[in-house]
Nucleic acid binder design. Sequence first.
DNA 1: TGGCAGGCGTGACCTAGATCACATTTGAAA
DNA 2: TTTCAAATGTGATCTAGGTCACGCCTGCCA
Lengths: 190, 190
Amino acid sequence: MKAKEVLKEHVAKNVALTDEEFEYFFSHFELQNFKKGQVIISEGSIVDYEYFVISGCLKSFFINDELKMFILQFAMPSWWASDFDALYNHTKASISLDCITDVEVLRLSNANREKICREIHSVESFFRWRTNRGYVASQKRLLSFMNNNVKFRYEELLSLYPELYNIVPKNLIAAYLGVSRETLSRLYHT
Amino acid sequence: MKAKEVLKEHVAKNVALTDEEFEYFFSHFELQNFKKGQVIISEGSIVDYEYFVISGCLKSFFINDELKMFILQFAMPSWWASDFDALYNHTKASISLDCITDVEVLRLSNANREKICREIHSVESFFRWRTNRGYVASQKRLLSFMNNNVKFRYEELLSLYPELYNIVPKNLIAAYLGVSRETLSRLYHT
DNA sequence: TGGCAGGCGTGACCTAGATCACATTTGAAA
DNA sequence: TTTCAAATGTGATCTAGGTCACGCCTGCCA
């Protein structure tokens, strides 16, 4: 499926745009390709774009003082990723974004997003919906984190996103679950 | 300060509404008073409203199978609270909302929010901003949860919201931090 | 004004998961 | 086809925080 179709279908799930509106909306995006391992946003840099994934898989993550990595999000096709804090508030990135596999994305600049939100009311509505969805998901994850042990959270993750099992190495899954890779390994072996 | 002023100031921080627009916007809210301990949203019920706090303090929380409580949010003046998942997706509440102190709120129904978002573009923009802010805060809290121990998180909470120290009992603070009240107590005593 | 429930401190003990150290497997690049 | 780094398994030991049990305040309301 072409990038444009993926985005169109995604948007259409939530707001109704005419074909002309969608074409105009789409004209604000740029298609980009990245190789596995490439860094898209690195900590400390200025963030100007958000990314809509067409194919492949990204991760957004934070690295603490002891060099331990925590993964905030695996971004699969039709997911959005960026450091939204830095992006919206024009601060330096505290979160990094890179490619777990080869990746195809549509990128949208901060300025362009604000522009099309201003120009097309439905687009603003779409972004409100999208952000709300992320917010709710984030709260659910926080609750699960407080409430459930590693094994439960691991199985929950895999049942929500079975694709991850084949694509993402276990040490990254562990970094998403907030446990050591050893503990994750011992869940089913030993 | 009157409820209307609190809301007006809050909105004005982020979008520009004319006085007429604001009056119209405000006409969709209803002022409500609750007593300490009163339940506003209870688990399993239908959620039709979101609440903007004028004075006092609310908590939104989840109770698990073993009756352990986890607090998602303390809502202080000029904060919004609800079960946003249930509200937006028309499902039953999995989260409850009640009053830590006597409380004054402005409530806004789901239908009215969508109506004024449709009618006034700036209002939609405001809600997009507000939700984005919540999303970013939630991600930060998740990161802090994975990265920091209880003591750090406790001090972080108090430095962000010093008012809480006087208003909120320690067992609720513990439920927010995701630890037992005993552990919280032992941080500084013993 | 006396009783009682909710808030808080604390001792003893338990456990999920962290950490460190090392071995084995594997897949992709040269 | 070899090679090397990344991914993974696993034993031994450590620790933050949980759980249970109990006791003491304190403020509120009957």
